[in-house]
Computed example of a mutant assay.
Amino acid sequence: MTEDYAARVQGEAIPKERVAAFLDRGGATPLGGAGNCATSHNTAAHARRHRQQRRWATQVVITDELARRACTERGLPPPPDALPTHLLNVPETDIAGLGSIIAAALSHSPATRALLADLEHEQDIPERAVRDYYDRNQDRFLTPDALRRGVDPYDESATSDIQPYGHVRHGIEHDLRQAAARRAFFTWLDKARADIEYAEGHEHPGDPTHQDHEHRH
Rank of each mutant, 00 (worst) to 15 (best):
A70K: 07
A96C: 03
H210N: 02
N137E: 05
A181S: 09
G166M: 11
V90H: 03
D81F: 00
T2C: 05
R148P: 05
A105E: 01
A38D: 03
A45C: 01
A199H: 02
T143G: 13
H86C: 00
A146P: 01
A129T: 06
Q178V: 01
V168F: 04
G35P: 07
A180I: 01
P79R: 07
R48K: 13
Q52M: 02
A181K: 03
T72D: 15
N42M: 03
G33A: 06
R128H: 07
A194W: 07
T58I: 00
I14G: 05
R69N: 10
S40W: 10
H108C: 08
P205V: 04
S157P: 13
V9F: 09
E120F: 05
A6K: 15
T112V: 15
P144K: 05
H108D: 15
P208Y: 10
R149Y: 11
A104W: 06
T43S: 04
A70S: 14
R148N: 12
P84V: 12
Y165Q: 14
H217Q: 14
D4A: 12
N42Y: 00
V61E: 04
D195R: 08
L115Y: 12
I102T: 08
H210M: 11
A146S: 08
A111H: 12
H167K: 11
N89S: 08
C37A: 09
I196K: 00
D124C: 11
A38P: 09
F185R: 01
H210V: 06
P126V: 12
R149W: 10
R169P: 03
A38L: 09
R140H: 05
G201S: 10
G35S: 02
L142E: 06
A184M: 09
A82L: 03
W188H: 02
Q10T: 13
T112E: 01
R51K: 04
E120D: 12
L31P: 11
R18L: 06
I102W: 02
T159E: 15
G27T: 12
R49V: 13
L115Q: 10
E173I: 11
L66C: 13
L66R: 15
E173A: 14
